[in-house]
Design a protein around this nucleic acid. Structure first.
Lengths: 223, 223
DNA sequence: GTCTATATCTCGATAGAC
DNA sequence: GTCTATCGAGATATAGAC
């Protein structure tokens, strides 16, 4: 008797199909029949393996979180400085979402539903010292202390970073209607997105030079 | 016989309730009963006014788009320069979303569903010269030509701008779990978000000074 | 383990009283 | 215009053969 529960090939097929359907339609909107069709199996098997739709959804959620956590490579820790870490963060995060759109979508649907299921997961992630968000905050504070970057709110910057990487994929259908390049060569456009995001954040955070305060032609005025 | 169809008070109540439910659960996931309960009416009335669930959803979608378009104030055109326009864009957009979360959510669920219903709307919006996105692109090109900002891809910058304003509200449940300030004083945190987004983009775009190229301590290297 | 057939129930939609 | 009661389609879930 072993504790680890091996996932059979059939289970895997069901979970993958369910992830896709749940992520687009939400828990209530999804249809068991559609999941079965996509998996190339029949409805009864879904209940054989997962008892109920609710049970299946719970397992799909775990499955999705597992994919997310598994994507945390050791790359971030090994980055020699803040800018290298930022670069790795952006590239690997965008790559992951590009290759796992259903994971991103399920995260979004969960947020739309109120995010109750996510709360504990996020909290425990934020309590893990070497999780990507924690590492980012820590390295940003270090960089500011050293003068590698100008002072800026790390939480706001983290939110911005996530926004820039994730939201783009969510609104891809819209982007494609007004940026021909995104339609014609998606992969190239995604690579361009990486560069833009890094450039934007890195340029904004670069430290203030001697005798040259951070300013712009006309200051944001509420005069 | 008049062309304009006045929306009765009851219709308005139904549309508002339906917008909330559809925006959280999607078209298929939403339940007519839940909408009726939220509106304080009974199911039969929904069918009396809108014939079917599909019909109701269509009307809710129009209702949502109307709210969005109505929020386009004349402020943007009147901004004297790019930075003022950016400032107004961010403030008014964030204010609108804060006050109309269901509109944002319905846009997101539509994107999750593939964005087919949005395509025509977005396209016609992008063909309207004084729509906010068009204005932004135009003013950004002008500013770059004048040297008010450094050269940067306007489309990517627009995507970033939208991302920074919208995504934050989508992941608010998550943000609140790791930023105490967001939970304790939401309004203040939202105001802080405006400042951060403006500061980030404006700082990043400020023009390169004579003899001082845009760079940072260690360049993003792929060595 | 996998399938077909069927039971059970939920939900969209309608009929009809007021 | 608004309600209660109910129908019927379609969904989840189960039974039972293979």
């Amino acid at each position: 008797m072993t504790v680890e529960q091996k996932t059979t090939e059939t289970e895997e097929k069901i979970l993958e199909a369910a992830l896709q359907v749940f992520s687009k339609k939400g828990k209530d909107g999804a249809r068991m029949q559609e999941i079965a069709d996509l998996a190339g199996l029949n409805k009864a098997l879904l209940h054989y393996y997962f008892r109920s739709k609710e049970g299946l959804y719970d397992r799909v959620f775990e499955y999705m979180i597992a994919k997310l956590v598994k994507s945390f490579g050791p790359g971030l820790q090994e980055a020699p400085d803040f800018y290298q870490m930022l670069h790795i963060f952006i590239d690997s995060y965008i790559d992951f979402i590009r290759d796992n759109l259903p994971v991103m979508r399920l995260m979004v649907t969960e947020h739309l539903a109120g995010g109750d299921r996510l709360r504990d997961r996020i909290r425990s992630m934020m309590e893990t010292p070497d999780s990507p968000p924690r590492l980012f905050l820590q390295r940003m504070n270090q960089a500011a202390a050293r003068g590698d970057i100008r002072p800026a709110d790390p939480h706001q910057t983290l939110i911005t970073l996530l926004s820039c990487c994730v939201f783009f994929f969510l609104i891809l259908p819209t982007v494609e209607t007004f940026v021909p390049a995104a339609r014609d060569n998606r992969d190239a456009f995604i690579e361009g997105r990486k560069d833009h995001v890094f450039d934007l954040i890195a340029t904004s955070l670069r430290p203030v030079q001697e005798g040259r305060p951070v300013t712009w032609p006309r200051h944001r005025g509420k005069e």
